[in-house]
């Protein structure tokens, strides 16, 4: 799939097996501290079996109101079209750039942690002190998050997490390419319509059947 301008990144939740390869690939590539999670896998309903016939189809199970069973979601910055973090940032440290990447400008960020509350996907990380008062008042140092490996994409490589993924659960490409691939795999999007409109914007979300 394409890299560079207007590239989007999105998980195929049905394919993720919670192996943690993406987390290791990210930490290794960018040499971020061990306890920082630019990408992290959230596992829900651990150990539970899904509804009859829907065990490996979490999106279909959710849309039918059935139990999806154990489901793992690789969570990272999805570089949203309508990025809530950019909206709330009081100093414009977060920007949605023309090439589609959501970027944090380290020298402008004041560590207020508004973005932490605003982000629906838990992407903002505060590798500085994040305990006690910092957790409440926001003096936890500057924010850090997934860059969608822009430096790698500039030379034609895919994001480290997606290239490492053993089951191709992290899709990279234009929103149309991602929608086609999810459709081909019959995986669905797993996220609800509100989340899809935040990530892809109302126009592009239509490709996913929102």
């Amino acid at each position: 799939m394409s890299t560079g301008d207007d590239t989007r990144i999105f998980p195929d939740v049905a394919a993720c097996i919670d192996c943690g390869g993406c987390v290791v690939a990210c930490n290794r590539t960018w040499d971020v501290p061990r306890d920082e999670q630019r990408i992290s896998i959230s596992t829900m309903l651990e150990g539970e079996e899904g509804a009859e016939g829907l065990n490996a189809s979490p999106s279909q199970a959710m849309s039918q109101g059935e139990n999806p069973g154990e489901t793992s979601v690789p969570m990272q910055c999805y570089h949203c079209e309508n990025a809530p973090c950019v909206t709330v940032c009081p100093v414009d440290a977060l920007v949605k750039k023309d090439d589609g990447f959501v970027d944090v400008r380290d020298d402008v960020c004041i560590g207020c942690q508004y973005c932490l509350s605003a982000c629906p996907f838990g992407a903002p990380q505060f590798p500085g002190s994040n305990d006690g008062a910092a957790e409440i008042f926001g003096t936890g140092g500057t924010m850090d998050k997934c860059t969608m490996c822009q430096d790698r994409q500039d030379v034609g490589k895919g994001p480290a997490c997606a290239e490492e993924c053993a089951t191709d659960a992290i899709l990279v490409g234009t929103s149309d390419q991602i929608a086609d691939e999810l459709d081909k795999r019959d995986s669905g999007t797993f996220f609800n319509d509100d989340a899809m409109e935040i990530v892809f914007g109302a126009d592009d979300a239509e490709a996913f059947g929102v």
């Binding site: 061990r34 306890d35 999670q37 992290s40 959230s42 596992t43 651990e46 150990g47 969570m75 838990g122």
Partner: peptide, 17 residues
């Protein structure tokens, strides 16, 4: 303090990530 991002006890129902 590393490796705590996964629950050691799923009965706790604490948030991961």
């Amino acid at each position: 303090g590393f490796g705590q991002q996964k629950d050691f006890d799923t009965r706790d129902n604490t948030t991961v990530q």
